[in-house]
Design a protein around this nucleic acid. Structure first.
Lengths: 221, 221, 221, 221
DNA sequence: GATGAATGAGACTTCATTCAT
DNA sequence: AATGAATGAAGTCTCATTCAT
C-alpha cells in the first residue's frame, strides 16, 4: 500500500535517507510518466512503458502510486503546484496587470513552443484527463482552485485599475484566459509554424485588453 | 465491408426501401455513438455500449462502419458538414460581421448549453480524437479546412469593414475564435451554472470586438 | 432448408426448368467456392467472398448448401466423382499397368502444374479439410473408397502382371501412390520451377516400378 | 513483449531462478499448444484452450509468445531443431545410406505410431500451417533448409555409393522422401491398424531402393 | 426463390493490478 | 523494497448462420 509522502516535509527537511531516496524514485517515475502521457495521451500510456523509461520494474510504480489515476493526479498536482508558485511570484511583481498577464502568456506559450510541454495540460479537459480523475482527487481540485483564484484576483485588479473592461464578469474573463492559455488553442501555430511565443503573447494581450481610445493613454480615472 | 451509398442518389431520391433503412440504421448508430463518445471520450467508449444503446447487436455496428476509428470519423464528418452548411447560410446573411459572429457564438453556446452537445467537439484536439484519426481521414481534414476557410473569410471581411482590429493576423484571430467556441472553454459556466448562452455570446463578442472609442456608436456605416 | 439434389437425375433427364436452373446455380457456387478454398484454405475462406465471386447474395448460398461444411463436402464430392469417372476410363484402357499409372501421374501433375488446381485436394488431410468433414459425410467417404478401390485394383493387377513388386502390400503401395499424387508432394517443383509434369511423371514411375534386371526389357508378356 | 533468452546461457548455465522458471513455463505452453494444434489444426486451435490445458491464464501465453503465429513458429522451430540434431547424429553413423535412411523412416514412423505425434508436421504444408507463418519467420525457413540439406546430402551420398538410382534428380528424390515421411502418408495405417513402424520402414525402404538385380548382392563395387 | 441486414458467439490481444519470490 | 510473472476483465473485430422483406 503506497504511503502518503509523509506529513510535514518542511518541518523535517530530511526525514531520513530513506525518505529522500523514496522521493527521488517518485520524481523519476513522474518524469517518465510525464513524457509518456504527453506522447501517447492518458489512455494509450502504458504503465509498462513508464516503468521501462524510468528504468525500474512495473511493480515498483505501484509502490509509489496506488493506481494509474493516482499517478496522473500526482503528476498534474506537481505541475500545477509549480505553476502556482510561479504565479505567486508573478502576481507580486510591481508591474501593471497587463504586463503581468503578458508575462504569463509568454511563460506558457514559450513552454508550449519549446517542448512537448506538459504544463497546464490539466487545466482543461484536454488529453482525456477525464473529469473523473479531477473529481476524485480533492488535492487536484484545490490546486486548480488556487490557479483560478490567482488569475481571478489578477483580473479583478485589472478591472479596478481600468485596464480590463468591467463589462465582462470575472468568471467569463477567467474562462477566456484559461482557454487562450490552453495548449489546444495555439499549439499548431507555435510548433509547426513560424509564430514566436513573444509575438503571440503580444497579440493575445491585444485581444484581451481593450485598445486605448486616445493616444495610448489609459482612460481610467 | 460497409458500402458507400453507391450510385446516384440524385437520380433516384429514394434508391429503394433498403437504402433508406440502411441510412436510418447508420443514423441510429451515429446517434448512440455520439452520446457514448461524449460521455466517455473516445478511448473509454465501448462498441458494446454503443450497440446496446442503439438497441442492436455489436456486429451490426461493423456492418455500417469498418472500425471504431471510422465510426468517430463518420460522426465528426457529419457534424462538421452540418455545421458548414449552417455556416454558409450565416455568412451569406445581410448583417454586419459582428452580428454574424454573435449569431455564430449564440448558435454554438446554445448547443453546448442545451444538451450533451457534440457539435464542434472535433474542431480542436479535445476528447482524445487523436490526430491519428484526423490524419487518416482526408474527408475530415477537408471538412475542417472548410470550416476554417469560412471563419477566416468572415474575419477578413471584418477587418476590411473596420470591425475587427488589423493588428491581429487572421490565423491568430481564427485560432482564438475556435478556442472560444470550443466546449472546453465555457462548458462549466453554461451547463452547471446560470449563464445564459445569449449573455455569454454578448460577452465574448465584447472581447473580440474592440470597443468603440466614441459614444458606443457602431463605426460600420 | 436446402433440398437434396432430387432423386434420380438419370430417370428424368430434365426434371424441369427449375431443376436445371437450380443445378446451374449450385455449379456456379461450387466453382466460386473451389477458387476461394484453393486460395485461402478452408478456415480462411469466407462465405461472403464465395457469394460475391459467384455474383449472388450470401443467403442464396444457404439455399443450396446447408452449411460451410456441406459446401466443401459437395465440392470435394464433385471433384472426386469426376476423378473416379476419369479413373474408370483409364483403368479400362488396353495398356500395361505401368503405362496406365504413368498416365495417372501425368494427369494429376499437369493439373497441379497448370493451375491453382483443386483436384484431389481432399484425398489427404491437407488444406485443413479436417477429418471432421470427411467423417460426417458418408458420400465423401464412399467416393474416397471408390478412388482407393480403383487404385488398389490397378496395383493388384500390376502385381499379378509382375510389373509391381509383391513385397509391398497393396495398402502400403496405395498409400504411397496417394502420397506422391498429393499436391503437397511436388507442388513447389511443379509451380515455381522448371520441372515439367511429364518429366516428373516419368521419374515417379521410375521410383514406383522396380528397374528391370536385364537390359531394360519389359518382363511382361 | 516476450524477451529473447538474452545473453549467454553458456556462460551462466543457470542464469538464475527466474530464467529457468521462464523456460519451464514456455515449455509448458509449447507442450499444451502442441497437443491442441495437433488435435484441432492451426485455425481451430484456441489460445483459450491452450492456456486452459497448460493450467495458466490466457494472458500468460502472451507473456511468452507475442502472437498465435509466433507460438506455432516457436513450436515448429523447436521440433525441427530437435529433428535436425537427431539427423546430424544419424548422418554421421558408420552405416550404409540405406541403413541410415531406414533408421530415419523407423524413427519418424515410430513417432507417428506412438502418439499424436507432431514431429515434422511442418515439413509439408499440412495442418494449415499456412505459408504465411513460414514466410514471416526466417528462423523456421533456415531450419527447414537445414533438414532439406541433410537429407539431400544423404541422397547424394547414396547415389555416389550406387545405392540410389541416378535417374531421379536429388530434388525429386528429396521431395519423395519428405512426402513419404509426412504424417499424412501412412498415418491411418500406423495408428488405426496393425502395421508396425518397423515393417512400414522396411517396405518404404524397399520402394526407395532399387532391388538388386542379382542374388541380393549389392551392385556397388 | 433471392436478398442482405442482423445476429451473437467467439477469436485474438492488451494492460492495469496483484503477489510470490 | 524491488521485481516481473501471472492474472483476467475488457476491448475490437470476424463470420457462419438466420430471417424478415
Amino acid at each position: 500500500m503506497p504511503r502518503t509522502p509523509s506529513s510535514a516535509p518542511a518541518e523535517t527537511p530530511m526525514r531520513s535517507l530513506r525518505e529522500r531516496q523514496r522521493a527521488e524514485r517518485a520524481a523519476l517515475i513522474l518524469s517518465a510518466a510525464s513524457a509518456v502521457f504527453a506522447e501517447k495521451g492518458y489512455a494509450d500510456a502504458a504503465i509498462d512503458e513508464i516503468a521501462a523509461r524510468a528504468g525500474i520494474a512495473k511493480g515498483t510504480v505501484y509502490l509509489h502510486f496506488a493506481s494509474k489515476d493516482d499517478l496522473v493526479a500526482a503528476l498534474a498536482e506537481g505541475q500545477i503546484r509549480a505553476f502556482v508558485a510561479w504565479l505567486d511570484e508573478l502576481v507580486g511583481a510591481p508591474l501593471s496587470v497587463r504586463e503581468r498577464l503578458e508575462r504569463l502568456l509568454l511563460y506558457v506559450y514559450a513552454r508550449i513552443h519549446e517542448q512537448h510541454n506538459q504544463v497546464l495540460l490539466e487545466l482543461n479537459h484536454r488529453m482525456g484527463l477525464s473529469a473523473k480523475v479531477i473529481e476524485t482527487h480533492a488535492d487536484l481540485q484545490s490546486r486548480l482552485a488556487q490557479v483560478h483564484g490567482r488569475l481571478a484576483a489578477l483580473i479583478d485588479e485589472g478591472k479596478r485599475a481600468g485596464e480590463l473592461a468591467d463589462a465582462v464578469p470575472t468568471p467569463v474573463m477567467l474562462a477566456t484566459l484559461v482557454a487562450l492559455l490552453s495548449p489546444g488553442a495555439y499549439e499548431h501555430l507555435l510548433t509547426s509554424q513560424q509564430l514566436a511565443p513573444a509575438a503571440l503573447a503580444g497579440m493575445v494581450s491585444h485581444i484581451l485588453f481593450p485598445p486605448h481610445p486616445n493616444h495610448e493613454k489609459e482612460p481610467s480615472l
